[in-house]
Amino acid sequence: MNIFRFAGDMTHLISVLVLLLKIYATKSCSGISLKTQELYALVFLTRYLDLLTDFISIYNTVMKLIFIASSLAIVWCMRVHPIVRRSYDKDLDTFRHYFLVAASFILALLVNEKFGFQEVFWAFSIYLEAVAILPQLVLLQRSGNVDNLTGHYIFFLGAYRALYILNWIYRYFMETHFSRWIACIAGLVQTALYADFFYYYYISWKNKAKLQLPA
């Protein structure tokens, strides 16, 4: 474990906590894409298939349980919770995310580290996570104004994978046989998708203004 990876995991955890706070505090999920949340639940469920078979550390197991439980809880809130579900922007959240699932799975069948059940699903989860934010970014552009907590949620979500890229660079130089080129390339794509959001987030922070994305 290196500082970049630990910082990345904590940033990822903070993003989840900020989203839970937003939903709990405002009893609303306006501005949040249910499709992106469903994709994240799928990412964690397919990536952590080794939860019961490979024990790495207490930290690893606890964090996996937190990410699986929180992503399912958020999807449950947005679909079932009588008050929260009413504020879901159903007619704005129209990205056809099934294409992302299909494309990621096909790519995982073609490009993986080993052609095995767990390995293919691991590669699938890596590719899917890289594009899972797309429905959320599209919803953001459509809904125009973004409440602060939603803006912070997306910022931390984007920042965590950027920290992971530093972790892969660090491990590449420090560990002999370390190679995570699938995760690294997907991580670069994932972080690049946030580029324009990071820019508008920085502008809003610099001008102490509300976060505005161009329609």
Binding site: N60, K114, A183
Partner: peptide, 10 residues
């Protein structure tokens, strides 16, 4: 550190 191939990252 985990051996080769084991996914030790989240």
């Amino acid at each position: 550190t985990a051996d080769e191939g084991v996914k030790d990252e989240l």
